[in-house]
Write a protein that binds this DNA or RNA. Structure first.
Lengths: 146, 146
DNA sequence: ATCATTCTGCAACTTATTTGCAATATTCTC
DNA sequence: GAGAATATTGCAAATAAGTTGCAGAATGAT
C-alpha cells in the first residue's frame, strides 16, 4: 500500500492527512502487532513530538482508524481497524486480542468470533474486551523446531 | 465476619496481620465491587499512607488474597479472591468481570465460567482476561421500575 | 530481653499522559 | 490569491499514578 492510499484512507475518515499522521498510519500499517505510544515513538525517532503522537493516536481512535487492545497492566496498545468497519460514530469490533508470553507481542485475532457469553439474568452485555495470553503460532513453531 | 476472622485469613495466607492490612482487607470485604487504590484511600481516609496501601495491595495479590480485575483504561481495580482458591503460588480464576456502564462499578461474575475459546491452530491459551461491559442487574431493575 | 526481619511513613523520583498556548499550516470565502 | 476562520503542531509545564530509598517502628523468634 502506498502513500496515496493512506491519504485516501485518512480523508475518508475525516482526518486531515498531515505528514505526521501519514507517518503514524504507515507505522501501524507496517506492523502485524499492536503498538504503544512508546513503540511508535521509537519507530518514528525521538525528534517527532510525543504530544503530537499522543494526539494523533487519540484522533485515529476517535475517527475509527485505530482501536485499543486490552493490555494486562501494560501501556495502552493500538492496532489498525479493518478497512470500512469503524468510523467516527462507532467501532464495531468483536474480536479478541492475544498476547504471546514468549515474544510479548499483542495481536488481533479477527477470526475468533466470541459466541454469546452465558450471563446471569438481569445483566445486559453491550461490549466486551477479551485478552488471551499464551503462545502464538510463530513462537510455538520455533520451540517445536528446536 | 469479624476482625478475628480477618486475622486468621491473613495469617493463613502468610500475611502479617498488621492494623493497616486488616483495615484494607475489611474495606474489600465490605465492598461488593472492585476497588482501585484511589478508592481504598478515599474509604480509609487521607491520613493513611498511600505507599503503604500500594504495598498492601501488591502483597495481597502476591499472597492470593486479592486479584486484579481488568479495567478498560481505568485505574487497576482489585477484588477479593474466593476463600481458599488462591495462594502465594498461584491464582485460579477463570471468571469474568463485568463493568456496568450505568453505575460504573466493576464486579466479579463468578458464576460465569468461560468455556474454551476457539483459537486458531498453533496458538495455546494459558490465561485470559475477560471484561464485559453493559448494564448490571441492579441498574436494569431501577430503569424498569421507573 | 535481644536480635533479625518485616513493615511503615515520608520524601523524592520516574514515567505516562494532559493542558495551555503561541506559532504554523490548512481550508474556506470572497 | 488575500485574508479570515479553523485545525494542527511543538514546546514547556503541569498532573497523576506508581515506585524507590531509607530511617525508624513494630513484630516474631530465640
Amino acid at each position: 500500500m502506498d502513500e496515496q492510499n493512506f491519504l485516501e484512507i485518512l480523508s475518508a475518515h475525516k482526518v486531515r492527512p498531515t505528514k505526521i499522521r501519514l507517518d503514524v498510519y504507515e507505522v501501524f500499517n507496517n506492523s502485524d502487532f499492536a503498538l504503544s505510544h512508546n513503540e511508535v515513538m521509537t519507530i518514528l525517532g525521538e525528534d517527532v513530538d510525543k504530544v503530537t503522537v499522543y494526539r494523533t493516536l487519540h484522533t485515529f481512535v476517535e475517527k475509527g482508524l485505530l482501536h485499543e487492545a486490552e493490555t494486562d497492566g501494560e501501556l495502552t496498545k493500538y492496532a489498525l481497524c479493518k478497512p470500512d468497519t469503524c468510523n467516527e460514530v462507532r467501532h464495531t469490533h468483536q474480536h479478541l486480542h492475544f498476547k504471546c508470553t514468549v515474544c510479548l507481542k499483542t495481536i488481533c485475532l479477527e477470526e475468533v468470533q466470541i459466541e454469546s457469553i452465558p450471563i446471569p439474568p438481569g445483566f445486559t452485555i453491550e461490549t466486551f474486551k477479551f485478552l488471551a495470553e499464551g503462545v502464538c503460532d510463530k513462537c510455538s513453531s520455533i520451540v517445536q523446531n528446536q
